[in-house]
Design a protein around this nucleic acid. Sequence first.
DNA 1: TCAGATAAAATCGCGC
DNA 2: GCGCGATTTTATCTGA
Lengths: 78, 78, 78, 78
Amino acid sequence: MGYVDGGHLKAFIERVEKLEEEKRSIGDDIKDVYAEAKSMGFDPGVMRKIVSLRRQDSGRREEEANILELYLQTLGMA
Amino acid sequence: MGYVDGGHLKAFIERVEKLEEEKRSIGDDIKDVYAEAKSMGFDPGVMRKIVSLRRQDSGRREEEANILELYLQTLGMA
Amino acid sequence: MGYVDGGHLKAFIERVEKLEEEKRSIGDDIKDVYAEAKSMGFDPGVMRKIVSLRRQDSGRREEEANILELYLQTLGMA
Amino acid sequence: MGYVDGGHLKAFIERVEKLEEEKRSIGDDIKDVYAEAKSMGFDPGVMRKIVSLRRQDSGRREEEANILELYLQTLGMA
DNA sequence: TCAGATAAAATCGCGC
DNA sequence: GCGCGATTTTATCTGA
């Protein structure tokens, strides 16, 4: 122990950093969309709520599917 | 008063949702990189710390470190 | 700058640590409840899902109230 | 098969929810302490770091710090 | 600039 | 012991 393959480590770190940069860039794009919408008279706060509610909806649907499956498993095990 | 252009609103919402989906996808890619690194013997926890350290603006980091140092000394922990 | 009231700082830190200890203790109590339920034949996984869904429900109700208020404000401003 | 004792289940769920409510309440208390400290001129961010440092098991902290150091040296960042 | 809300990151704990 | 998911904590962002 004590040896580290610096070349590989560096490559991994840089891949992560590149991906994080892309992610940040998309985050900026999202902000731009809200700004553009706002400039056209839409309320960004309301828009964010809508997006959030729609996200929760799909999340909840998934959860419900999961719990259904769990119930079936539980019954199947009994 | 009270009129909302639903067509434009819908388009904006969908653009945001598409971008958020891409963002999530990149997040998954990042997880994959860490997993791959781990499978080669690297410690993902430490790698994350490195990425985090590099991400922080060094100026602010030093500033905060100084305050922390001061507090620790005050508490007799340094 | 450079002076820190160590007495007050220490007191605050200790208050936080005491509260965190209580929080951890309650977390343990929760685990105990699940364990007890499991010993009586209930499925902890299913129970957690139920608790989670009920929590989401109240959260969603709040969010819907928020968005309603936002809409009203938006209309009131128009 | 398929029978569930709803009375007991409901009781367990409610015990969990009550405990979770208490936990949330203590979380709020902690936030209050930080707010009060801030109002007296302390830096909450730094205070959180101190609490975090004290919480960490020092043995494990040293272990991880060593690996981090090794990686940083390998990358030429140390 | 600050508080409050939102989202991201790190950590923790469970089940497999 | 490992991955996965939930929780918690941190950081960012928005609006006052």
